[in-house]
């Protein structure tokens, strides 16, 4: 897999990162070698193999439908960089 400038642009946009030119070049090189190395898994024939997402032998972990939490706004907002009127404050999301 050749990692192009386009790939770096795309993945950095997905990861919400702004890279300097130098970082972009480094990312191209590093991702190129790492992702190429990953491709050794293509040596394995996995056509008949079910993908294993959960390794632990547990199913149906549920809680009952009961309300156990009360208001806790002070704690919820305690680490926020900026708040207003009991809300997290962010730059305007619509124009």
């Amino acid at each position: 897999m050749i990692i192009t400038d386009e790939t770096i642009k795309y993945v950095s946009a997905l990861a919400k990162l702004e890279l300097t030119e130098e970082e972009k070049e480094k990312a191209k090189k590093d991702l190129g070698s790492i992702i190429s190395y990953m491709e050794i898994i293509n040596e394995l024939d996995t056509d008949q193999v079910e993908p294993l997402s959960h390794v632990f032998p547990v199913k149906n972990v549920f809680r009952d439908d009961v309300v156990v939490n009360g208001p806790d706004r002070e704690n919820i907002l305690s680490n926020a960089p900026e708040t207003k009127d009991g809300c997290f404050k962010v730059p305007k999301t619509v124009e």
Partner: peptide, 9 residues
């Protein structure tokens, strides 16, 4: 008024 968006979860 404040030209911002407030988030309520």
């Amino acid at each position: 008024w404040d030209d911002c968006t407030l988030v309520d979860y």
